[in-house]
Nucleic acid binder design. Structure first.
Length: 287
DNA sequence: CCTGAAACCTGTCTGC
DNA sequence: TGCAGACAGGTTTCAG
């Protein structure tokens, strides 16, 4: 589920208060509980993972790609929400637990941070050096370093389809299925184009549009769909995602859905042509 | 290097 | 109404 904007919204909320409840910064932990063993992916603190927490204080919350980072000196608790993960801060009473709660950090003030995850794909790590995990991630699309030149360099060097290319977290960290479809539409690029077929101008357009879509998502507190996630309203800004058969906001052509790399992919066949007309063809069309 | 399929899971929606 | 099957915002692993 959550992509960069949703994870960023969680990070901000846990830091400053928001959709998850009030800030967890400076709260002291009195206990930790794990309700689904496999949620714990790996821990430097094993086998006494749960025993490590009591007495520690949360000092910061941040984000890298789709990972949420909770700093609890001298370690970092990393959380990846995968498809259905959710976080909330609420009174830490046993009767307050919800179905699918997988992990709980109980604070001395009576509230708890709950990690809820219906599909059990989400994972948490407790690490001394989070870089071990994070160093594999690609560039932050909202950083200064993410530029038109950088993207063109990368697309030029890859023969992959542009959609799986953008979804690859080793290249760009944070894009998921929604924001990829929305970015490709705004850039006018067909999802089946080869990365190295993009012109300099197309790569520039894509590099400009990706941060735009992500920032728009953050401004909307993310996207809420069905029973997954809440508090966001970016779903009201979708131009292609989940708009199969509906008219393109730009040309009225029906939005098409296909599978690309086993992911549902939405696009406008008119605004995102598979084969852009080349100069020679254009010349022939105008004798 | 690249692609596709399968696996990890549960809930919801669709169609017969 | 019931039920099988498809599908879902992600990532990893394996075969070809």
């Amino acid at each position: 589920m959550p992509e960069l904007p949703e994870v960023e919204t969680f990070a901000r909320s846990l830091r400053e208060g928001g959709i998850t409840g009030s800030s967890i910064i400076n709260r002291q932990i009195i206990s930790a509980d794990l309700f689904w063993e496999r949620t714990l992916a790996f821990s430097d603190a094993q086998p006494s993972f749960l025993d490590w927490f009591p007495g520690k204080v949360v000092s910061d919350v941040s984000r890298r790609g789709k990972y949420l980072l909770i700093t609890i000196e001298p370690k970092t608790l990393l959380i990846h929400l995968r498809m259905s993960g959710d976080l909330r801060v609420a009174p830490g009473m046993t009767e307050n637990r919800k179905p699918h709660d997988r992990f709980e950090l109980r604070f001395s003030d009576g509230e708890s941070l709950f990690f809820n995850d219906t599909r059990k794909f989400g994972r948490i790590w407790l690490m001394d050096k989070p870089e071990q995990l994070l160093s594999k991630l690609g560039i932050e699309p909202l950083s200064e370093a993410f530029s038109a030149d950088w993207l063109y360099l990368k697309t030029s060097a890859s023969q992959r389809l542009i959609k799986p290319f953008l979804l690859d977290q080793h290249i760009i960290a944070g894009l998921g299925n929604i924001y990829t479809d929305e970015a490709l539409f705004r850039a006018g690029i067909h999802p089946l184009r080869r990365a190295n077929s993009l012109s300099d101008a197309e790569a520039s357009k894509l590099a400009a549009v990706i941060p735009q879509v992500l920032l728009e998502g953050i401004r909307s507190n993310g996207a809420s769909i069905d029973w997954v996630y809440r508090g966001g309203n970016f779903q009201n800004h979708f131009q292609v995602y989940q708009r199969t058969g509906k008219p393109c906001v730009s040309c009225q052509t029906a939005i098409t859905k296909i599978a690309v790399g086993q992911r549902g992919t939405h696009f406008c066949p008119h605004c995102q042509p598979l084969k852009p007309p080349n100069p020679a063809e254009l010349a022939e069309m105008q004798p």
